[in-house]
Amino acid sequence: MQCYPEQLQAKLAQRLQPIYMIFGDEPLQKHEAIAEIRKAAAKLGFDNGQRFVAGNGFDWQQLNAAGATMSLFSEGELIELELPTAAPGRDGGQWLQQYVSQPTPDQILIVHGPRLAKDKQKAKWCQALQSAALSITVNPLSGQQLQRWLEGRCQRHQAVLQPAAKLFLMEQCEGNLLAADQELQKLALLYGNTPVSLEQLQVSLGNHARHNVFQLSDALLANDLPRCLKILDSLQGEGLEPVIISWALSKEVLLLQKVAELPSGDSRGMMRLGIWQQRQPLFQQALKRLSAEQIRQMINRCAELDQGLKGGTIQHPWTWLAHLCLMFSQPWQQEPLFISDAELAQ
Rank of each mutant, 00 (worst) to 15 (best):
residue 53 V to K: 03
residue 101 S to V: 06
residue 90 R to T: 07
residue 20 Y to H: 09
residue 283 F to Q: 00
residue 203 V to N: 09
residue 343 E to D: 12
residue 231 I to R: 14
residue 141 L to D: 07
residue 310 K to P: 09
residue 312 G to I: 09
residue 184 L to Q: 07
residue 95 W to F: 12
residue 227 R to P: 05
residue 88 P to K: 08
residue 198 L to W: 05
residue 209 A to G: 15
residue 316 H to Y: 15
residue 321 L to F: 12
residue 38 R to D: 07
residue 103 P to N: 10
residue 280 Q to M: 13
residue 209 A to L: 03
residue 150 L to N: 14
residue 13 A to L: 11
residue 65 A to M: 14
residue 144 Q to P: 03
residue 33 A to Y: 01
residue 87 A to S: 15
residue 241 E to I: 08
residue 51 R to T: 10
residue 94 Q to L: 11
residue 243 V to C: 11
residue 76 G to H: 04
residue 292 A to M: 00
residue 143 G to I: 02
residue 14 Q to L: 14
residue 148 R to W: 10
residue 86 A to Y: 07
residue 166 K to G: 03
residue 121 Q to V: 04
residue 328 F to S: 00
residue 53 V to P: 01
residue 30 K to F: 06
residue 25 D to E: 05
residue 225 L to H: 12
residue 140 P to F: 02
residue 294 Q to E: 04
residue 49 G to E: 12
residue 122 K to M: 12
residue 191 Y to C: 14
residue 330 Q to T: 14
residue 148 R to H: 11
residue 163 P to E: 14
residue 235 L to R: 02
residue 50 Q to P: 04
residue 293 E to T: 08
residue 331 P to W: 06
residue 4 Y to V: 04
residue 328 F to V: 01
residue 146 L to T: 08
residue 203 V to Q: 15
residue 120 K to R: 13
residue 203 V to Y: 01
residue 131 S to G: 13
residue 183 E to G: 05
residue 268 R to S: 09
residue 164 A to I: 14
residue 215 Q to S: 10
residue 143 G to T: 03
residue 37 I to H: 04
residue 301 R to K: 13
residue 105 P to A: 07
residue 279 R to F: 04
residue 170 M to T: 10
residue 259 V to Q: 00
residue 41 A to C: 07
residue 247 W to Q: 14
residue 297 Q to S: 13
residue 264 S to I: 08
residue 194 T to H: 11
residue 186 K to G: 02
residue 194 T to Y: 04
residue 171 E to H: 12
residue 32 E to L: 15
residue 90 R to V: 06
residue 200 Q to D: 11
residue 89 G to Q: 10
residue 189 L to P: 03
residue 294 Q to D: 08
residue 228 C to A: 09
residue 130 Q to Y: 05
residue 63 L to Q: 03
residue 256 L to Y: 00
residue 266 D to F: 04
residue 308 G to Q: 10
residue 194 T to R: 13
residue 340 S to Y: 02
residue 137 T to F: 01
residue 345 A to V: 07
residue 22 I to S: 00
residue 212 N to R: 15
residue 247 W to E: 13
residue 243 V to E: 11
residue 143 G to A: 05
residue 260 A to T: 00
residue 193 N to V: 10
residue 143 G to S: 05
residue 89 G to H: 14
residue 200 Q to Y: 10
residue 45 G to N: 05
residue 52 F to S: 08
residue 113 G to K: 06
residue 176 N to A: 07
residue 211 H to Y: 11
residue 165 A to H: 04
residue 152 G to W: 11
residue 14 Q to E: 15
residue 194 T to S: 12
residue 243 V to T: 13
residue 316 H to T: 06
residue 313 T to N: 02
residue 57 G to P: 15
residue 157 H to A: 13
residue 168 F to V: 07
residue 299 I to Q: 12
